[in-house]
């Protein structure tokens, strides 16, 4: 069993390290610093940590104001509030003027678990990636998170990064070279391309193992940057395999699956199956029970891969 780290923990640690290196980094939170882990930064740099209380809209526009003065604000709260409660602020005060604000949302997706539907952000990627000028990143594990947090601190422009609550298996080596906008082929294959992000990348790798035993060669591509999408890597993989599956902890509408579908229809129309949260509000439960019930396990990805291959063969 691989080691597990919650991406939010990796965020808190990395932020505190960055605080030492760059005095312009400031951190904003909305009464959730213990959960988002910005409290790690706060302990080290209390003067550069600003709690805005339960007032997310104000937090985002304040971050925008700080960015106009050369600060590099990281603003955090739960994904459901970080994207939904503040959408117009992100649109008008951050993306339109292209300000250097990093929105790092924790508790994305259904694995938030027991808190239930009000707290399960299954729509955030869709409503963020539609905004011009924004970069949207969903790291797959603790290592990718740490690297991505460093990368976005160096990058100038609006970023939405989505992290999770629960521990996820470590799948990257410590020397992994994360680049914004670069998808990574985790495992080469020839029969089907599985495009995944977040905790679904580990599940996709597990599905690929299962498929190998059946004689199916699945390619697994980790698409951490959902915007701007690595069109070249995605098209190349789809050309090679001729069919695709997307896997994400998000609604099957508008997220990674939506982005991949848009790309494939432009550059390499192949059959594609989407694994993710169906078009419904989800519910309380432990993360594993939820992934099972809503069809987001390694077994579900494997099923989708077989289906996609079947479609491909029927069309030939």
């Amino acid at each position: 069993m691989a080691e597990k780290i919650a991406t939010r923990d990796a965020y808190g640690e990395t932020l505190a390290e960055l605080g030492k290196e760059n005095p312009n980094i400031v951190v904003l939170d909305a009464d959730l610093s213990k959960s988002t882990k910005t409290n790690v930064f706060q302990k080290a740099f209390p003067d550069r940590h600003f709690n805005f209380g339960i007032a997310e809209a104000n937090m985002i526009s304040n971050a925008a104001g700080m960015a106009t003065c050369g600060k590099i604000p990281f603003a955090s709260t739960f994904a459901v509030f970080a994207s939904g409660r503040t959408w117009d602020q992100i649109r008008a005060s951050v993306c339109y003027p292209e300000l250097n604000v990093k929105i790092v949302a924790t508790h994305g997706g259904i694995t938030v678990g027991e808190d239930g539907a009000t707290h399960q952000a299954n729509e955030d990627i869709a409503i963020m990636r539609v905004l011009p000028n924004i970069t949207v990143i969903v790291p797959a594990d603790g290592i990718e998170t740490a690297k991505a947090v460093r990368a976005i601190a160096d990058y100038k422009g609006p970023v939405y990064m989505r992290l999770g609550r629960s521990g996820v298996p470590v799948i990257f080596d410590a020397d992994y070279d994360f680049q914004i906008g670069k998808a990574v082929v985790m495992r080469e294959g020839t029969d089907v391309s599985i495009f995944a992000c977040g905790l679904m990348t580990a599940q996709a790798l597990e599905a690929a193992e299962t498929l190998t035993a059946e004689g199916i060669s699945a390619e697994v591509v980790n698409v951490a940057t959902i915007k701007p999408l690595d069109v070249e890597t995605i098209i190349m993989s789809a050309r090679k395999t001729g069919c695709a599956v997307s896997a994400e902890e998000h609604s099957i509408i508008g997220g990674l699956g939506g982005a991949i579908a848009e790309t494939l229809i432009d550059g390499c129309p192949v059959h594609m199956e989407r694994v993710g949260v169906p078009d419904t509000f989800t519910e309380s439960g432990n993360p594993k029970a939820l992934l099972d019930k809503y069809g987001m396990t390694a077994a579900d990805i494997a099923t989708a891969a077989r289906l996609s291959i079947q479609f491909k063969q029927e069309c030939i």
């Binding site: 700080m66 106009t68 604000p73 005060s93």
Partner: peptide, 18 residues
């Protein structure tokens, strides 16, 4: 940048904090 009412004062607050 303004136009969506209600946001500018927060932006000004951020500038003052900076």
């Amino acid at each position: 940048t303004t136009g969506s009412l209600g946001q500018g004062l927060s932006g000004a607050g951020g500038m003052a904090i900076a």
